[in-house]
Design a protein around this nucleic acid. Structure first.
Lengths: 325, 325
DNA sequence: TTGTAGGCGTTATCAA
DNA sequence: TTGATAACGCCTACAA
């Protein structure tokens, strides 16, 4: 591969000059620019980003740590993050933590060693200090770690209220919430709290079930749903913590001969694109996934550029009513 | 961030020596190793991978170009690729080409500039020469570019035969295939060819429909399916080019009041994990996605290490019969 | 407007 | 067994 020196030689100038036209710094005559550019073209020259990064101490790489890219929600989020990073001149290093503490730690270490400019954390299983100490631009999804680390999330509580009151207003009298484990620090826990609060306020009987871990475990949801209908046969409304869970709920109802929405009303959360196939006409609370991804990238870049960022970014959700309520 | 010099100073040795213990080269007394290691620990030192890469001219990064990470099949593939790359000490740079020629070209350029050690192409919209000229370890999925560029795919033809004969053996007499555009160079075209050949050989009436482009276009499939049932109301068997398409077929049948498998039998292709939710009990041809991902990574690494690789790797598929046939 | 020299953090080559 | 010294390819003072 040709280097800057080869280009300099061919254009009859010094390497510095080539570097200048490369970065458009200082005063350069048009003629010179042209000469250098054609030398580059002839040699099919591309500046070595490794060398540039080392020299500038800036890699233009963002690390993304998520539990599972194969989970539809994260797949969508990743897709948007990649796109916006690319548009801003950043590359994306992908890390699947699989909700594993050790892996997450190793990835963070690896990303620091790779001198990424910042890390977007969609997975966070570590203790607060582990994140604070890393002195790197950081953004998390759905988790408040400390005042210095900004987070992006949808209006979980608002969404929970919307979903719950929709069920109740439609006439449900025995409603259930199914979600991931409501760890204290995970903000999606607010969906559950909103459910509980709203049902309480509206004097509606309610119950809720949670998986042990946040892993994308298909069977866990099926087991949970079976348990729900076994223990509470009269359930007539379900607020699912995600569209995937809602799809399982629909499937379970179908298998049990329960009609939706006549016998049971179901509302999901997320608004993933796949829902149209997964559960046609599903009522759901739509998160602005694209905006969330874009915002996360922007927040990293703003920090890189020394700008100030707020502590929290709570984006509005939207109720999309389909035919399952 | 501390550098190798800081460690050297603290351990009372030269930078060269630190580098030696870092890479375990040459003879080093246990005592010295210990001393250096504790200096590293105390400083919380991590070698700068950018500098290492530059010096060794090896980045330990693999570039992955795919059309859409949010497509379930690619999401799964990406997940496996990332995992195996990680296990082998490689990082993954993710690129969503969106089936766009310009983007693909820009990504290739960017990856070369970043000095990735190799590129796995799950998207390939360019001309043969563009790939041949890049003189970088390469592996493609489902496309034969030239004899020097190895490709990984499932036994598309075999899978097509399995699916088609399953339909016919179950008694279907008017069968259809729906798939992506059968471009000449895309190997998934073999699924279609197998369908045609097998139906012909078994004297079964058959037809087929294809989308214009390979993009993950939901509506296109719905339109295609509508067209199919309008033009050929007697269809009693469908071989879908993917599980996603099969899910659309199921949905369409449901909407039209057709029972599966009584009125119409359906078999998909891919075997994505999500099929259990998308189309419970779907009969499908399962590709060994994980092996394919692992193999692609291995083939890159083998080339990086100067090893020889074959031109093609065709992995066996498996018929998984569910309740839709 | 252009060039020289030194540095980014590491590894490789020689000597000692 | 250890240490200078010169790369790797680029960028940025400082000089001219």
């Amino acid at each position: 591969m040709p280097t800057i020196k080869d280009v300099a030689l061919r254009a009859g100038v010094s390497a510095t000059t080539v570097s200048r036209v490369l970065n458009n710094r200082g005063y350069l005559s048009e003629e010179l620019k042209k000469r250098v550019h054609s030398a580059m073209d002839e040699l099919n020259y591309r500046p070595n980003e490794l060398a540039r990064s080392l020299s500038r101490s800036k890699s233009n790489i963002i690390g993304l740590i998520i539990p599972h890219v194969s989970h539809p929600f994260f797949a969508e989020l990743t897709s948007h993050i990649e796109e916006h990073a690319y548009l801003q001149g950043y590359k994306l290093l992908l890390c699947n933590s699989q909700h594993d503490k050790t892996k997450e730690l190793e990835y963070i270490d690896m990303l620091r060693a790779s001198r990424v400019d910042g890390i977007i954390m969609g997975s966070h299983t570590l203790e607060v200090d582990a994140y604070r100490q890393m002195s790197l631009p950081l953004v998390t999804f759905d988790r408040r770690i400390s005042a210095e680390i900004p987070y992006v999330c949808s209006d979980n509580y608002g969404g929970g209220v919307l979903a719950t009151s929709l069920l109740i207003n439609k006439g449900c009298t025995r409603i259930a919430h199914i979600g991931g484990h409501p760890e204290l620090h995970i903000l999606s826990r607010l969906r559950y709290e909103a459910f509980r609060d709203t049902a309480g306020k509206m004097n509606t009987w309610h119950t809720s079930l949670h998986t042990d871990n946040d892993s994308f475990d298909e069977e866990a949801y099926e087991r949970l749903l079976d348990q729900l209908f076994r223990e509470h046969p009269g359930i007539d409304g379900i607020f699912a913590g995600s569209d995937i869970i809602a799809a399982y709920a629909l499937k379970t109802c179908r298998e049990r001969g329960l009609n939706v929405p006549e016998d049971v009303r179901i509302v999901g959360y997320d608004g993933i694109a796949l829902r149209k196939l997964l559960a046609p006409q599903l009522s759901t609370i739509r998160q602005p996934v694209e905006e969330m991804g874009k915002l996360a990238v922007d927040l990293i870049i703003r920090q890189v550029d020394g700008g100030a960022v707020a502590a929290e970014y709570i984006l509005p959700v939207e109720l999309e009513e389909g035919a399952t309520t």
